[in-house]
C-alpha cells in the first residue's frame, strides 16, 4: 500500500509527506538506530519511538518507505523540517508499536 493511503486512515496523522506515493512492502520495529540500519529492509514502514534528528538520517540511508512514530511521539520543528527537506515521510499514531504492527498486518 502507499504511504498516502496509510496517512488517510483515522489512526494515523501525517507529520511530513514529501514522498506520499512511496509503496510500503514490509514492516520493521526498532529504536536502536544501528540495529534498524542492520535489519530493516528498503521500503519497510519503520515503527519507532525515537524522535531525534538521527532518525531522519537512518530512514534516508536505510531507504525505508516511512517512519511511523508510535504512542503519539512528536517531532521537534527542526527535525520535521529536516525530514521534509530530505524527502522522508513521517506519520504519527496514538497506537503502541504493537498496535501499529497489528494494524499494518491487516493492511499489507
Amino acid at each position: 500500500m502507499k504511504v498516502s493511503e496509510l496517512a488517510a486512515l483515522p489512526e494515523f496523522t501525517a507529520v511530513t509527506l514529501p514522498d506520499a506515493d512511496r509503496e510500503i512492502t514490509g514492516v520493521y520495529i526498532g529504536d536502536l538506530l544501528s540495529w534498524v540500519m542492520g535489519r530493516a529492509q528498503a521500503d519497510d514502514a519503520w515503527i519507532t519511538i525515537m524522535s531525534n534528528v538521527n532518525v531522519v538520517a537512518v530512514a534516508s540511508l536505510a531507504d525505508t518507505a516511512c517512519v511511523l512514530l508510535a504512542e503519539d511521539v512528536a517531532l521537534e520543528d527542526a527535525v520535521k523540517e529536516t525530514a521534509a527537506a530530505r524527502g522522508i515521510n513521517v506519520l504519527s499514531s496514538p497506537l503502541s508499536a504493537y498496535g501499529i504492527a497489528c494494524r499494518l498486518h491487516s493492511l499489507l
Binding site: 529504536d31 538506530l33 544501528s34 542492520g38 525515537m50 538521527n54 532518525v55
Partner: peptide, 15 residues
C-alpha cells in the same frame, strides 16, 4: 539515549 551505542556499528559496516 540517542539510539546509538548498540554495538552494531562495526558489524553493520562488515555486513
Amino acid at each position: 539515549s540517542l539510539g546509538f551505542g548498540a554495538g552494531m556499528g562495526l558489524p553493520n559496516m562488515k555486513r
